[in-house]
Amino acid sequence: MDDDRPDVLLTGLLFYDLVLTGLGGPPTPGREIWTTGMGCGPGGIANLAVAASRFGLRTSLATVLGDDFYGAYCEEILARQEGVDLSLTRRADGWPTPVTVALAHGQDRALVTHGQEPPYTQDALMGDPPAARTALVHLEAEPRAWLSKAAANGTLIYADVGWDPTERWSTDLLDQLSLCHAFLPNEEEAMAYTRTDSAIAALGRLTDLVPVAVVTRGGHGAVAVDQTTGEYAEVPALDIDVLDATGAGDVFGASFVAASLGGWPLEQRLRFAVLAAGLSVGHHGGALAAPGWYGVDRWWRAVEDPALRRAYGFLDDRLPADPGPPVRHAPVTPPVRHS
């Protein structure tokens, strides 16, 4: 396309993730548990950045890197390996890059994080944000000034939201949807913020607030309404064994944006996002579990089930002729870098 703007603009907190899988049971005081799987890599906002970049989107990330091993490693992976633009990112002297240990057990995981408040806010990192085709945003109780600036310069805002630790679920947060093109919460969050008792009811409420509303439903797939096209779609999840669910929601969001930028029908956008998120849970970590075009192409070539062939037949026309090289998944330990 004759458009030199970034396809996706991102800002948020970056983590170094260490993910442990294959626990025989939950950890208990005084007991040592050996695991059968482990992986490490960038996490947090990096999940969205890598997932988007692996679908060929020009991705610009504004975050903070500590001047330590973890920050240098994450910078190496994001900029050199994954091709993410870090021109808006800052390195902070004396500030430790946040580190999260994720213990994946069953369909969920427990997280233990060490970190400090970053020395730069999102607004300081962004300033007057560059015009971009889209921005992927995590809404917080306190509105960010850069968000309204981005919306004003024509950037389409795709937003999600996280768990409210206070469990008050203030409806004031939904006022920010006036700046957004799309909103993609999960089922529990959507029902809590809209004071409804089902995903469908929550979706109906959200359609009054934002042009494109999507509610993800985990193992039950996703539902969505796109008022700009008049479409409604509901798709099931794929039957995929879960190794680690870290970052699956981020992969869903980035994949939905990639398909939306391609102008796909709503049902295809949803199926594509559900597929990409499903493929990601078979690998360790969040960012480096993203399948990219290579992972989707490999899955499609192996599909024999007639129902899946029909449901995902649109991939024949959507997959690029060259899906690129194999993606790199989370290593057990970072490789040694020799100067």
Rank of each mutant, 00 (worst) to 15 (best):
A92G: 11
T63L: 03
G94P: 05
D68S: 11
R91D: 02
T59S: 11
A62E: 00
F69S: 15
S87E: 11
S60Y: 14
A79W: 07
I77P: 03
L88W: 03
L65W: 05
T63M: 05
F55D: 01
G94M: 06
T63S: 07
T97C: 10
Y73M: 14
S87D: 13
F69N: 15
E76F: 15
E75K: 15
R90K: 14
T59F: 08
D85L: 06
A62Y: 04
F55I: 11
G66M: 06
F69K: 13
R91C: 08
A92H: 09
A72I: 03
G66D: 01
I77H: 03
D93Y: 15
F69G: 12
T59P: 09
E82M: 06
V84N: 00
A79S: 12
A62F: 01
Q81G: 12
G94C: 08
G83I: 06
T59H: 10
G71S: 12
G94F: 11
E75Y: 08
G56S: 13
A79T: 09
E82P: 06
I77Q: 07
Y70T: 11
L78S: 01
S87C: 11
P96V: 07
T59G: 09
G83S: 13
L65N: 09
G66L: 02
T63V: 02
G71T: 09
L86K: 01
L78D: 01
R54Y: 01
P96H: 01
E82D: 05
I77A: 05
Q81S: 11
L57H: 06
G56Y: 00
Y73N: 05
D68R: 05
V64S: 01
L61E: 04
R54K: 07
Y70F: 15
S87L: 11
Y70H: 13
Q81L: 14
S60T: 14
R54F: 04
F69L: 15
L88E: 05
E82W: 00
Q81V: 15
G66A: 09
T97W: 02
L78H: 03
T63F: 04
L78G: 00
L86E: 00
Y70C: 14
A72H: 10
E82A: 06
R58S: 08
L61P: 00
E82L: 05
P96K: 04
L88M: 06
C74G: 09
L86I: 04
A62G: 06
L78Q: 03
A62I: 03
P96D: 10
P96Y: 01
F69Q: 14
A79K: 08
A62N: 03
G66I: 00
R90Q: 13
Y70L: 12
L86R: 00
A62T: 02
S60D: 10
